[in-house]
Amino acid sequence: MFAAHFAAGLALEGRAPRAPLWSLLVGAFLLDFLWILFSVLGLDTTGGDEWSHSLVMAVLWSSVFASAFRRHGRAAMGAAWLAIFSHFVLDTLVQGAGLYPHAPVNLKTPPFVTSGYRWVQLALCTILLVIYARDARRLAISPWRRTATCAIVVALNGRFLLGY
């Protein structure tokens, strides 16, 4: 669902123009970066990705990351927080999620979308890119940049839809 994560970070840009764009894009992928780090270091022994992707940990990582943007104002902090938490929400749709690390199986949500998830991602990307394009236009971001950005995300999503 990585294209949807990019689109979520971009959609937040217009909501908090003082937030650095890199913070929203990195934030949208932070849970995956942590998942890789914890896996490589052998720190996540849950058999899944609960130290990075569970509800409680997503809230914690979102809060820690957002606090680094305090000097940019509340809107920037909120956007950074939402960028990370959006990852949890989007992944929960197609992967399910645990409540906290080592939570019992009965406290884990199943995926909401079990078939056709690639089309769900396309729909989510489209909605988020429309929000980005509308806000980018309002913020006077050049048409060339808006178009190129959307084209890249659509290309990434198209690659995923084709199964590559």
Score class of each variant (00 low, 15 high):
Leu34Phe: 15
Asp44Asn: 11
Leu41Ala: 15
Ala7Leu: 07
Ser86Glu: 00
Phe69Trp: 15
Ser86Lys: 00
Arg134Met: 08
Ser54Pro: 00
Glu50Gln: 14
Leu41Trp: 14
Thr147Phe: 07
Gly98Ser: 14
Ala4Met: 08
Ile152Phe: 15
Asp32Tyr: 09
Leu139Gly: 01
Asp49Val: 02
Cys125Phe: 02
Phe85Val: 06
Phe69Gln: 11
Ser142Cys: 03
Ser62Asn: 11
Arg159His: 11
Met77Thr: 08
Ala75Asp: 14
Leu31Arg: 03
Pro143Lys: 09
Val40Leu: 15
Leu107Ser: 05
Leu12Arg: 07
Pro110Val: 09
Cys125His: 00
Leu156Thr: 06
Leu25Lys: 07
Leu128Gly: 02
Pro20Lys: 13
Gly14Glu: 03
Phe69Leu: 13
Val64Tyr: 08
Thr114Asp: 09
Leu30Met: 07
Ser67Pro: 00
Ala79Asn: 02
Ser115Cys: 00
Thr92Asn: 07
Ala66Gly: 08
Ala4Pro: 04
Lys108Met: 12
Ser86Trp: 03
Arg118Ala: 11
Leu43Phe: 14
Phe85Lys: 04
Ala83Asp: 02
Ala3Asn: 04
Ala76Ser: 15
Ala79Gln: 04
Leu41Asp: 10
Val120Gln: 10
Ser52Val: 05
Leu43Thr: 11
Thr92Met: 05
Phe88His: 12
Ser23Gly: 10
Gly48Phe: 10
Leu128Lys: 05
Val89Lys: 00
Pro20Met: 05
Ala7Met: 09
Phe33Leu: 15
Arg138Leu: 09
Asp49Phe: 01
Leu25Cys: 04
Ile36Glu: 03
Cys150Gly: 11
Ala68Met: 14
Ala148Lys: 03
Leu24Ile: 06
Ala75Glu: 14
Leu10Gly: 03
Arg71Ser: 14
Leu37Asn: 08
Ile141Ser: 06
Pro20His: 09
Ala103Cys: 14
Arg15Ser: 02
Arg74Thr: 13
His102Met: 07
Ala3Thr: 05
Ile36Asp: 04
Cys125Val: 15
Phe65Pro: 03
Pro143Asp: 10
Ala133Gln: 10
Leu90Pro: 02
Leu43Trp: 15
